[in-house]
């Protein structure tokens, strides 16, 4: 296929599929813990880290990772202090992140580099970024498999998990770091403004169809890979922005699933009424 003749597209597919494998793993837990907006909050905060990195002349991805880790620990801290208003912790951190990113971006000399983090640049992946995504992908997948039952139980009920002996604090801490690192790396490739949707939409689609937790995880990964691959193809042939195309395909798919489910439910109801 012509699309694969280009090295940058082959890299885009490699990085895209690796991210599509790990973002839903984080996304499922985030959605089930009712912290869907955490990706958005961290992605915005990562911009502050990117700006700080560019100003201090250090790798902007390292800056993004540091900012994301600080923000996610901040979210976890506020969530513990205000357990009944968990979502407020995200709003507070996001406000702080946007404010900081806004102020710091004024001092960045190369604004083009900063802007590439807003919408990502999946078709301009460097060797370093490819290696970084591969390492992060391996770590996140390994951690997700090893902590599968712990993450499931904590998402279901943190209190019961603690009573059953799950090391809740340690698992939450590891998950927080993994989320921060995943968001930072994904922000560089698919864009800070889009990474949150990549976490939530595949999970939302999966939850419409799956009847178990295991299937929800597998379907989420399946949907994410589907959106990523079809988004890259479509964006290449139609000359669209890849990150935005990937997300829009996900949104269209979710809307279609909801419509089909609704129609199927009505048909089933009518049949039952006729029988009754």
């Amino acid at each position: 296929m012509a699309i694969f003749e280009f090295e940058f597209m082959r890299r885009a597919f490699m990085v895209g599929i690796m991210l599509a494998l790990i973002i839903p793993c984080i996304g499922v837990i985030v959605v089930l813990k009712r912290l869907s907006m955490i990706g958005d909050s961290l992605a915005h905060t990562s911009l502050a880290g990117v700006a700080a990195g560019l100003i201090l002349n250090i790798n902007p991805i390292a800056g993004a990772i540091a900012a994301c880790i600080a923000a996610s620990l901040g979210i976890e801290y506020i969530r513990k202090k205000l357990p009944k208003f968990a979502e407020m912790s995200i709003a507070i951190t996001m406000s702080a992140g946007i404010g900081l990113a806004g102020v710091l971006s004024g001092f960045v000399k190369n604004s083009a580099n900063f802007n590439s983090f807003l919408f990502g640049s999946i078709v301009a992946i460097s060797d370093f970024e490819l290696r970084l995504v591969a390492i992060v992908c391996a770590i996140v997948l390994l951690a997700f498999v090893l902590l599968y039952k712990e993450l499931f139980f904590i998402s279901l009920d943190e209190r019961l998990a603690r009573l059953a002996g799950v090391p809740v604090w340690a698992v939450n801490f590891i998950f927080t770091i993994l989320t921060a690192v995943t968001v930072s790396v994904a922000a560089r490739t698919v864009g800070a403004l889009i990474v949150s949707s990549m976490m939530v939409i595949p999970t939302a689609c999966a939850m419409q169809l799956a009847k178990s937790y295991k299937k929800t995880v597998l379907y989420s990964i399946g949907f994410a890979v589907l959106f990523m691959v079809s988004g890259l193809f479509l964006s290449y042939y139609q000359r669209l922005k890849p990150g935005a195309t990937i997300v829009l395909i996900g949104v269209v798919c979710l809307v279609l699933i909801l419509i089909v489910k609704n129609v199927a439910r009505r048909i089933k109801k009518r049949r039952l009424m006729r029988k009754g």
């Binding site: 089930l32 090893l146 902590l147 039952k149 712990e150 499931f152 139980f153 998402s155 279901l156 009920d157 209190r159 019961l160 998990a161 059953a164 002996g165 799950v166 090391p167 999966a206 939850m207 799956a210 009847k211 178990s212 937790y213 295991k214 299937k215 929800t216």
Partner: peptide, 30 residues
């Protein structure tokens, strides 16, 4: 707890998955 599993009404899990989760101390870490 007071609400049992009523809060988990939209949690995508089967009865088997939920019950097995509480065997954590018997299954062991990792």
């Amino acid at each position: 707890k007071q609400s049992g599993l009523q809060e988990a009404i939209n949690f995508p899990a089967t009865a088997k998955e939920v019950v097995m989760a509480n065997l954590y101390s018997q299954i062991g870490k990792l």
